[in-house]
Design a protein around this nucleic acid. Structure first.
Length: 493
RNA sequence: GGCGGCAUAGCCAAGUGGCUAAGGCAGCGGUCUGCAAAACCGUUAUUCUCCGGUUCAAAUCCGGAUGCCGCCUCCA
C-alpha cells in the first residue's frame, strides 16, 4: 500500500512520491538550544522518530536531518543573564536534548547540523536573494521583501492583505512591509557576529533551515516537518527564501504535529505550565511517554496530565504482562529440549495467521498518514490474541507452542521496533516500573517484600485470615499481589 | 479583525459515504482462584454537540447554530 501523507501546504492527504526512488529526505526543525526540552518537544521528536522508523521498515532509505538553532536572541539573553558565552549555553542544552532524546528511545537523526556551522551557506543564500532583488538592506540588516514573492502566504493559507489588515504585526521603520522578515541582523555591541557583505552581524532564524536543508538534502527534498506553530511564519518564510533563490519549492510534503496542552490550554512559559522531559521521566517509564504520545493522532492536540499517563501505564503493563508470560512459557519449552518434527496443528496455524494479519493491519494504518493510534489498536488486539492463546494452548504440543509464540514474538518485535516500545525485557520493565512507583510513593521495597514473605508463609499454613490481612495492609499501600502456582508477584497500582 | 482546527461511551481515542461505530482506561456479570489479582469470555454509544439539507445510504458530504482550541508575536 502506498504511503499517504497529509500535506499541510495543500491541506489534503496525498500519496508520497519521492524525489528519488525508494529514498526519502526529511528535514525537521529542531530546538533552539536555550532551555531544557519539554513534553511538546518530546511529542514532535517521538512522532517524527516513528515516521522515520516506519518508512525504513517499509524499505525506504531515509536521510533524516534535524537541526539545532544555536544562535538566537533567546540564547544571547540567557548567556548574558548567566554571564557565560553563547557557546556554553547552546552546548549545554544540546547535550541535555541528546540525553532526553536517548532516554525516550528516539533514534539519532542521520544528520544534526548546527546553525553556527553553516553561516557561510546562509550568507551565500542571502546574497543570491539580494542579487535577484528579493531582499534589501537597511542599516546592516537584510530583509526579505514578501511582496516580491507572489506565492507568499499560499502554503499557510493566508494572503498578504488580510494579514496586514489584521495589524497584529509589528511596525518597524526599517521594513518596507511589516511582514518582511530579517535574513540578516546587524549585531549590537557585545553580541556575537560574523563578517558579511552587509557588515558584522548574525543570521535571522528562518534562513538557517533553508541553508541547511538545501546543503544536506538538495534544492527540493521530500518531507519537511515541525510543530504546527511553525506553519506560519517560519515555514512560509523558508519556502519564500528557498523558492525565490532556486525557483523550486524546498519540500514536496509539509508535515506538522499538534501541540501538547495542559488542561486544554496551550503549554507555555507565560502560563507557567511547562513540563520538562526530565521531570516527567523521573515519574514515568519512557515507553509510557511514547505510548501516551502515540495513542492520539499526531495532528490532534493532546492533553497532558499525570492521570492520563497513569492510564497509559496500565495499558503498557497489560502489554508487558503478556510479553512476560510469553517469555516464561517459551523459556520452559526451550528447556524441555528438542523440537519434535510433527506438523503444527490447524488452530496453531490459525493463530500464526492472525498475528501476521495484525502486522499487516498495523503497517497499513501507518501507511495511512502515520495513524499511530489506529496501529496501536491492532497491537492491543494482538495482546488479546496472545493472552487468548495462553489459555487455549494448555494442551497444545510443544511444537505448536514454540511456533505460535515465536510468531507472536516476531509481530511484537515489529510493533516495538516501529513504535519504539517493547524495547526492554519484560522482567526489567517490571523491575524498573516497581522502582519508579516505589520512589513516587515513598515506599520501601524491603518492607513490602517482608510482608509478602510473611503472607506466603501464612498461605502455606492455610492461614487464610492472616494472609488476607497482610494482603489488605499491602493494598492500603497501593500494592497489589498476584499469586501464581508457586510464586507471588506484586505491582503498585 | 483575518485564517484554520476540533466536538464520537464515565474518561482517553481511532474511524471521514454503505458489513455488528477499532482500541485503551474505568465499571459490571461469568470462568479461573482458598479468596483475590492477572488473564480469558461476555457486557457497557440503536448512536457519533444541536438544527436543517444532499443521497437508495452520513458520525463521515453541504449549510447554519452552539461550545472549545490554535495560528496571525518567540514558540514544538
Amino acid at each position: 500500500m502506498p504511503q499517504k501523507i497529509y500535506n499541510s501546504a495543500t491541506r489534503k492527504k496525498e500519496t508520497l512520491k519521492t524525489v528519488q526512488e525508494r529514498k526519502v529526505g526529511i528535514y525537521v526543525c529542531g530546538i533552539t538550544a536555550y532551555d531544557a526540552c519539554h513534553i511538546g518537544h518530546a511529542r514532535g521528536a517521538v512522532f517524527f522518530d516513528v515516521v522515520v522508523r516506519h518508512l525504513r521498515s517499509q524499505g525506504y532509505e531515509v536521510v533524516y536531518v534535524k537541526n539545532f538553532t544555536d544562535i538566537d536572541d533567546k540564547i544571547i539573553d540567557r548567556a548574558k543573564k548567566e554571564g557565560v558565552s553563547i557557546g556554553e549555553i547552546s552546548k549545554r542544552y544540546i547535550a541535555m536534548h541528546d540525553e532526553d532524546m536517548a532516554a525516550l528511545n528516539v533514534l539519532t537523526p542521520t544528520l544534526t547540523p548546527k546553525a553556527t556551522e553553516h553561516v557561510p551557506d546562509m550568507i551565500a543564500l542571502i546574497s543570491v536573494l539580494v542579487e535577484k532583488g528579493y531582499a534589501y538592506t537597511a542599516d546592516g540588516d537584510v530583509y526579505f521583501a514578501v511582496e516580491k514573492f507572489p506565492l507568499y502566504g499560499a502554503n499557510s493559507g493566508r494572503n498578504l492583505e488580510d494579514m496586514i489588515a489584521g495589524a497584529r504585526v509589528d511596525i518597524s521603520d526599517k521594513k518596507k512591509n511589516p511582514l518582511d522578515f530579517a535574513l540578516w541582523k546587524a549585531s549590537k555591541e557585545g553580541e556575537p557576529y560574523w563578517e558579511s557583505p552587509w557588515g558584522r552581524g548574525r543570521p535571522g532564524w528562518h534562513i538557517e533551515c533553508s541553508a541547511m536543508s538545501r546543503r544536506y538534502l538538495g534544492e527540493t527534498f521530500d518531507i519537511h516537518g515541525g510543530g504546527e506553530d511553525l506553519i506560519f511564519p517560519h515555514h512560509e518564510n523558508e519556502i519564500a527564501q528557498s523558492q525565490a533563490a532556486t525557483g523550486k519549492p524546498p519540500a514536496n510534503y509539509w508535515l506538522h504535529n499538534g501541540f501538547v496542552r495542559i488542561n486544554s490550554e496551550k503549554m507555555s512559559k507565560s502560563l507557567g505550565n511547562v513540563f520538562s522531559v526530565r521531570e516527567i521521566l523521573k515519574k514515568h517509564h519512557p515507553e509510557v511517554v511514547r505510548l501516551f504520545i502515540l495513542q492520539s493522532h499526531y495532528r490532534s492536540p493532546i492533553d497532558f496530565s499525570e492521570s492520563y499517563l497513569a492510564e497509559t501505564r496500565s495499558a503498557l503493563v497489560r502489554c508487558y504482562t503478556a510479553l512476560r508470560i510469553k517469555k516464561e512459557m517459551l523459556a520452559k519449552l526451550s528447556v524441555a529440549g528438542s523440537l519434535p518434527e510433527d506438523k503444527i496443528s490447524a488452530p496453531a496455524r490459525d493463530y500464526i495467521k492472525q498475528f501476521k494479519q495484525m502486522e499487516e493491519n498495523f503497517d497499513k494504518a501507518l501507511d495511512d498518514d502515520f495513524n499511530t493510534a489506529g496501529a496501536l489498536g491492532y497491537v492491543f488486539e494482538a495482546v488479546r490474541m496472545l493472552n487468548n492463546y495462553f489459555m487455549a494452548a494448555k494442551n497444545a504440543s510443544p511444537t505448536d507452542k514454540i511456533k505460535t509464540l515465536t510468531a507472536a514474538g516476531k509481530s511484537f518485535e515489529h510493533f516495538g521496533a516501529v513504535l519504539g516500545i517493547f524495547q526492554v525485557d519484560p522482567d526489567d520493565f517490571f523491575i524498573s516500573d516497581n522502582e519508579r512507583e516505589l520512589r513516587k510513593r515513598d515506599l520501601d521495597r524491603e518492607e513490602i517484600e517482608k510482608l509478602i514473605t510473611q503472607r506466603t508463609a501464612a498461605r502455606k499454613n492455610k492461614d487464610w485470615a492472616k494472609a488476607d490481612a497482610i494482603r489488605e495492609s499491602l493494598a492500603r499501600m497501593g500494592v497489589s499481589v498476584k499469586d501464581t502456582s508457586n510464586t507471588t508477584t506484586w505491582i503498585i497500582e
